[in-house]
């Protein structure tokens, strides 16, 4: 027989009348018990008021997102025995960022609104719709599209993203993955408009890989954002952010192309302009750091290798 053991489940509960409070439950579990089953047991056997979302219990529907021991996870994809600590305890809380509605149920409207902003649907060519032309797709193109389409709208990445919290103009990781999925789809006819929707927002991502880390589907939204940024040179439009990003990035590319390294003082000047750079210099002087800003590193000696690598533009 499979060995059972008693675990303690601490849930941060919430309702409008009582506000937030913690409640503990004891549950029998074995090595096969998913956290969604733990919740179902509590609800049907101990506390019917316990509220949470759950549907497929196989990590394809994205309902049961929550914080398990502080970590953003799907409850169904978390086995009770791996979740518990040495005291056989596990803590469950509603996801960060979203407004709480009830116990482990947050209001996810803000997540959905971000998704809708990227017009998440294919606009096929009329001749394909009518059947005059058949649209083909290479296996590698399908792979790329599917990678980012595998998102299950669970909202974990947005709840964990530091930029989303600070910057309402940032569409967030999931919406970027979704947007890029259509950019990468040769069957779509709105690629330019899509780049227009995504480009400014892409430069609001910090590339911190938090979304990559918490995604239960391995969608890697940050990679979609990076791939979107790569279109910055062919995108005709601009915004304040994009202008700065272009200056900054082209200076880096230039610097690497010339010396094989980044020369920060030059980068500073070119990106932020003379006035802002001087202001920052003042701060650095006060910190006693200015001597480093002036330091000069040697260039790469074998620049031929670097030039060959940098050489042919994409």
């Amino acid at each position: 027989m499979v060995e059972e053991k008693e675990i303690t489940v601490n849930v941060k509960k919430y309702d409008k009348e009582k506000g937030e409070y913690w409640k503990s439950y004891k549950v029998q579990a074995d090595r096969y018990t998913q956290m969604t089953e733990v919740l179902r047991k509590i609800k049907t056997e101990q506390d019917p008021t316990l509220s949470y979302r759950a549907s497929c219990h196989m990590a394809v529907c994205g309902s049961c997102s929550m914080k398990i021991n502080g970590e953003p996870r799907l409850a169904c994809k978390t086995m009770a025995f791996t979740a518990i600590n040495e005291k056989n305890e596990v803590n469950l809380e509603s996801m960060d960022y979203y407004q709480e509605v009830r116990d482990l149920i947050p209001d996810m409207d803000t997540f959905y609104d971000r998704m809708y902003k990227v017009e998440p649907r294919l606009y096929a060519d009329q001749t394909v719709i009518s059947g005059e032309n058949d649209e083909r797709m290479t296996p590698s193109e399908q792979k790329e599209v599917w990678k980012f389409e595998e998102c299950i709208w669970c909202g974990l990445c947005v709840s964990a993203c530091p930029s989303v919290k600070e910057d309402e103009k940032f569409l967030g990781p999931a919406a970027h993955a979704k947007g890029y999925r259509f950019m990468a789809d040769g069957r779509d006819t709105k690629k330019e408009e899509r780049i227009g929707i995504l480009m400014d927002s892409a430069w609001r991502c910090t590339s911190c890989y938090m979304c990559y880390e918490v995604c239960p589907q391995d969608v890697q939204p940050v990679i979609a954002i990076k791939k979107t940024k790569a279109y910055v040179d062919e995108f005709p439009g601009t915004t304040e952010l994009i202008t700065m990003a272009r200056k900054h990035d082209s200076t880096i590319a230039e610097s690497i192309g010339e010396s094989g390294k980044i020369k920060e003082s030059k980068l500073y000047l070119k990106t932020f302009g003379y006035v802002a750079a001087m202001k920052d210099m003042m701060y650095m002087m006060k910190e006693g750091k200015i001597k480093y800003a002036m330091a000069k590193d040697t260039d790469v000696k074998n620049m031929d290798e670097i030039k060959k690598i940098m050489g042919d533009k994409k």
């Binding site: 394909v128 649209e135 083909r136 296996p139 399908q142 789809d185 069957r187």
Partner: peptide, 15 residues
Amino acid sequence: LDTWGAPFNRQPDGR
């Protein structure tokens, strides 16, 4: 489904 964007797996010739 294809015109609505379903990402079906493909054969080498794109079908």
